[in-house]
C-alpha cells in the first residue's frame, strides 16, 4: 500500500493529466456527427503517432559508435511513427478536402 501511494506521488502530475484527458477526450468527441467519424478516427490516429517523440529521443541519444540491433530498431520505430503521423494527417486532409469543396460550391 505504501508503495502504491509512493508511486502515485512520484507520478502525480501524469496521473492528473490522464484523469483530466479522459474527460477531455470524451467531451470533445461526444457531439460529433456520423459524417465525420471516419476523418475523426483518422485524425485521432495521426495524433497517436505522438510516439514519434519517443523515437526521436531514442535515436537522438543512441550510441552511434557501433551498429547495434537497438539502433536499427530505434530507427525503425522512428520511420513507422513518422508514417503514422504524416500519412495520418495527409489522408485526413484529403478526406476533408472533399467536404470543403462541397461547401464552396454551395456558396457560389
Amino acid at each position: 500500500m505504501e508503495h502504491i501511494l509512493q508511486y502515485f506521488f512520484t507520478y502525480k502530475e501524469a496521473i492528473f493529466i490522464i484523469a483530466l484527458s479522459i474527460f477531455l477526450g470524451i467531451e470533445v468527441i461526444s457531439n460529433v456527427p456520423a459524417v465525420l467519424h471516419t476523418p475523426l478516427m483518422s485524425g485521432a490516429n495521426a495524433i497517436s503517432g505522438v510516439i514519434i517523440i519517443g523515437g526521436i529521443i531514442l535515436v537522438g541519444h543512441a550510441d552511434l559508435s557501433k551498429v547495434s540491433v537497438d539502433l536499427l530498431l530505434g530507427i525503425l520505430a522512428l520511420i513507422f511513427g513518422t508514417l503514422n503521423v504524416v500519412g495520418g494527417f495527409a489522408v485526413t486532409d484529403r478526406m476533408l478536402e472533399m467536404f470543403k469543396k462541397k461547401k464552396t460550391q454551395k456558396a457560389s
Binding site: A14, I22, G25, I26, I47, V50
Partner: peptide, 17 residues
C-alpha cells in the same frame, strides 16, 4: 506531458467513438 495528453486524448476519444 504532450505524449501523455495526446495519447490519452486519442484513447478516450477512440473509446467513445
Amino acid at each position: 506531458q504532450a505524449m501523455i495528453l495526446g495519447g490519452i486524448l486519442v484513447g478516450a476519444a477512440g473509446m467513445i467513438l
